[in-house]
C-alpha cells in the first residue's frame, strides 16, 4: 500500500485513491484528421516504462481531485506528486521517459 501525497489533502493511504494510468496524454483536438493508427495510438498505446512513470491518480475517497505522480515502476519509489497543469516533478538522475505523442505537452 503506497502512501500517496495528495497535493491538496496531504499524505493518505493508497486505498483512498484510484489509479488513472499514464499522465500527460493529451487528447487530440483534431481527431477527424488522424489516421486510424494515430487515433489508436492515443487510445490504446502507453509508454509502460520500466522505471520512471508519470501517472495519474484520483483521490476518490478524499477531495476527489485528479493529480499526477512520478513513480518508479521498478524500485517503487514515489518521486513526487503535483497538480494538473503544474510542471512535472523533477527527478534528478532519472532516465528520460518518452511521452506519448513525442513532444510531451502538459496535460
Amino acid at each position: 500500500m503506497l502512501p500517496i501525497r495528495c497535493p491538496w489533502c496531504g499524505e493518505r493511504e493508497q486505498t483512498e485513491f484510484s489509479y488513472g494510468g499514464e499522465a500527460h496524454i493529451v487528447r487530440p483536438t483534431d481527431s477527424a484528421d488522424l489516421t486510424d493508427a494515430e487515433w489508436g495510438d492515443y487510445v490504446f498505446f502507453r509508454t509502460n516504462p520500466r522505471g520512471l512513470h508519470y501517472e495519474r491518480w484520483f483521490h476518490a475517497f478524499g477531495c476527489r481531485r485528479w493529480f499526477n505522480m512520478a513513480r518508479d515502476t521498478v524500485s517503487g519509489a514515489i518521486h513526487g506528486t503535483y497538480r494538473p497543469g503544474e510542471p512535472r516533478t523533477d527527478v534528478p538522475d532519472a532516465p528520460r521517459v518518452p511521452v506519448a505523442g513525442g513532444d510531451g505537452g502538459e496535460g
Binding site: 484510484s18 488513472g20 493529451v26 487528447r27 476518490a60 485528479w66 497543469g85
Partner: peptide, 13 residues
C-alpha cells in the same frame, strides 16, 4: 461521476 471529474480536471480545466 468520476468520468466527468476526470475530463473536467485533467483535460478541460
Amino acid at each position: 461521476m468520476s468520468w466527468l471529474e476526470e475530463w473536467l480536471q485533467t483535460e478541460w480545466p
